[in-house]
């Protein structure tokens, strides 16, 4: 999340500042706020359905629904997002539901796979237009579709099922060999994917 990091860096304290004093004096705790979750089951299901369109089940590996990206996204949006970002996200989910209703008179899960793809392509286009407007200085903030896509990819790649099916998962390798033969199609060693890399994948096409 480059933009968010840039914003955070503005908050860095310089020059004659007592670091940590404010929190220390106010007795403020560094504990994360409790995760109650701001998304209801219907929204979590919608995220799993959207996730399945973005990262579908295939013969060799699970889809996003199987690894339950919806609940993961609920955890992260609740714990990581600012109230403003949470509002963008919630408004975005409503916008998706409204779009399904307006164009197909159906809910997202009632659409055919082709219609779901079609809808997500529209969201891609909307996110692209939003970014162009941000670049022109006409809009600000992140588009909700980028948030959904980024968190879907992050939750998916960091899930147990994906680590163990799509990658060579080696919690205790025991050995290291520096140079082995590799044939295209051999699995890559699982490594932790973070929010930053997930963002890169999400915006690559936007």
């Amino acid at each position: 999340m480059k933009r968010r990091e840039a914003l955070q860096s503005l908050g860095v304290l310089f020059g004659g500042t007592i670091v940590g004093a404010q929190a220390f004096l106010s007795g403020c705790s560094t504990e994360a706020p409790p995760v109650s979750g701001i998304l209801n089951d219907r929204k979590i299901k919608l995220l799993n359905d959207l996730g399945e369109t973005l990262l579908p089940t295939t013969a060799d590996s699970p889809g996003a629904r199987q690894v339950d990206v919806g609940n993961f996204i609920n955890d992260i949006v609740s714990a990581f997002y600012t109230p403003e970002e949470q509002q963008i996200f919630l408004d975005g989910l409503k916008a998706v539901t409204d779009l399904c209703d307006k164009q197909f008179s159906k809910t997202y899960d009632q659409l055919s796979p082709e219609e779901q793809t079609n809808l997500c392509l529209q969201l891609e286009a909307a996110a692209k237009a939003h970014r162009a407007a941000v670049d022109r200085g006409e809009k600000s903030g992140e588009h909700y579709y980028v948030m959904i896509k980024q968190l879907t990819i992050w939750g998916y790649l960091s899930s147990e099922e994906v680590a163990k099916t799509a990658f060579k998962h080696m919690p205790v390798p025991g050995k290291y060999e520096g140079c082995i033969d590799y044939t295209p199609g051999d699995k890559a060693i699982f490594q932790e994917t973070g929010r930053g890399a997930s963002y890169w994948y999400a915006v690559k096409s936007i």
């Binding site: 929190a23 994360a32 995760v35 960091s158 147990e160």
Partner: peptide
Amino acid sequence: AMKEQWEFPHRMEIPPQIRNQNPILD
């Protein structure tokens, strides 16, 4: 020591609120 990424509450990342409270450690 033996935890996998998916076993951490936030997949190993520190929530932004805590990062913001720790501009040095961050």
